[in-house]
C-alpha cells in the first residue's frame, strides 16, 4: 500500500513538473522580454555578470591551455610547455605586446568608416555561447551604457550581430552565424539585395537570390540598410564564397563573414535606429576595415 502511494506521488510530482514546464515554455515563446520572466532572466544575468567578467579575466591562459589540449594538438601543447619556462622578463614583454595588440584593435575600431554622429559604445567580449545550440557573445557593458535590444554590433572586420538582451553590467549579442540571425544585405557595387541568414553548424551565411542576377565568388557583401533593417547601410558583412544555381528557384549564395567570431575581443555597439543616417564606407575593399582609402557615402552608391 505504502509503495503504491509513493509511486503515485512520484508520478504526481513528475506530472506537475511537466505541466509547469510546458506552461513556462508557452509563456516564454509567446511573450517578449518585458514580462516577469524577462525581469527574472535579466536579474539572473546581472547577478552572474561579475562572475563572468572575473572568470574571463582569468580565463585567457586557461583557454590557451585548454585549446592546446583539445584543439591544436601537440604543437600547441609544446608551445605551452615552453611558455611556462619563460622568465619574468619574458612575461613583462608579453604583457607589453598584448597591450600593443589591444591598442591595434582599438585603433581599428576607432578607424571604422562610420559617421561620427552615430554614437558607438566599445565593449569587451566576456563570454561566449552559454549553450550548445546558440551562437552568441556576452559583452562587458549593458543597459547602464545605453545598450538596448536590437542595436547593431560591429567588430574590427565588419558586422558581428545584434543585441538580443541587455541588463545592468552586460548584454548578449546574437551573432550573424546564429540560425535565428538575419541581415538585409547588398552585393557591393550592384543593386542586388537579399536576406542573409545564419545556418546551424556552418560558418557561412545563406543568401537566396532571384535567378539571373550577376553575383560572382569574391564579391563583397555589405548591409543594405533597407527599410526596417536593424543595421545601417554599408557595413561590411563578408564575401561571396559559393554560388549555386537551384533550377526553378534561383541562386543560393553562401557568404563568408569577414568577422572571425571565435577571436572577437572588442566590439562596438551602434546607437543607430532603423531609418537613421547611412554610413561611410571605402570605395575599394570592404575588409579589413582598417584599410585607409578615400571614403564615399553609401547613400551616393545607392542612388
Amino acid at each position: 500500500m505504502a509503495v503504491h502511494r509513493r509511486a503515485s506521488r512520484r508520478r504526481y510530482v513528475l506530472l506537475v513538473l511537466v505541466l509547469t514546464s510546458v506552461t513556462l515554455i508557452t509563456l516564454d515563446t509567446r511573450s517578449d522580454d518585458s514580462g516577469p520572466l524577462g525581469v527574472v532572466g535579466r536579474a539572473a544575468h546581472t547577478v552572474v555578470s561579475p562572475v563572468e567578467k572575473a572568470v574571463d579575466s582569468l580565463a585567457d591562459p586557461l583557454n590557451d591551455w585548454w585549446q592546446g589540449l583539445t584543439d591544436r594538438g601537440s604543437l600547441k601543447k609544446e608551445n605551452e610547455r615552453l611558455r611556462r619556462e619563460l622568465s619574468e622578463l619574458e612575461d613583462e614583454r608579453r604583457q607589453a605586446q598584448e597591450a600593443l595588440r589591444e591598442n591595434e584593435v582599438f585603433e581599428a575600431l576607432a578607424g571604422l568608416p562610420i559617421y561620427s554622429d552615430i554614437h558607438r559604445e566599445t565593449a569587451r567580449v566576456v563570454n561566449r555561447s552559454t549553450g550548445n545550440f546558440e551562437w552568441t557573445i556576452t559583452l562587458s557593458k549593458g543597459s547602464e551604457s545605453g545598450i538596448s535590444p536590437n542595436m547593431a554590433v560591429i567588430g574590427p572586420d565588419g558586422v558581428v550581430g545584434k543585441v538580443l538582451e541587455s541588463w545592468t553590467g552586460g548584454s548578449k549579442v546574437r551573432l550573424l552565424i546564429d540560425p535565428d540571425s538575419f541581415v538585409s544585405v547588398r552585393v557591393f557595387g550592384s543593386q542586388v539585395t537579399g536576406l542573409a541568414r545564419g545556418r546551424a553548424g556552418s560558418d557561412l551565411l545563406r543568401l537566396e537570390l532571384d535567378p539571373g542576377v550577376d553575383v560572382q565568388v569574391g564579391d563583397d557583401v555589405v548591409t543594405s540598410g533597407l527599410e526596417n533593417s536593424d543595421f545601417p547601410a554599408g557595413l561590411s558583412v563578408g564575401e561571396v564564397a559559393e554560388v549555386e544555381e537551384q533550377p526553378g528557384i534561383g541562386l543560393l549564395v553562401r557568404v563568408r563573414p569577414w568577422t572571425d567570431f571565435d577571436d572577437l575581443e572588442l566590439v562596438q555597439v551602434l546607437d543607430w535606429v532603423p531609418g537613421g543616417p547611412p554610413v561611410v564606407v571605402t570605395t575599394t575593399s570592404m575588409a579589413p576595415a582598417a584599410t585607409t582609402t578615400t571614403p564615399t557615402t553609401v547613400a551616393e552608391d545607392d542612388e
Binding site: 513538473l17 511537466v18 509547469t20 514546464s21 510546458v22 513556462l24 515554455i25 509563456l27 516564454d28 515563446t29 520572466l37 527574472v40 532572466g41 539572473a44 544575468h45 552572474v48 552559454t130 549553450g131 545550440f133 546558440e134 552568441t136 538580443l164 546574437r174 535565428d180
Partner: peptide, 12 residues
C-alpha cells in the same frame, strides 16, 4: 535563464 531556447526546455 542564460539560454536563448525557450525557458524551461532544459528544466523539462
Amino acid at each position: 535563464f542564460f539560454l536563448e531556447t525557450p525557458l524551461a526546455l532544459s528544466a523539462l
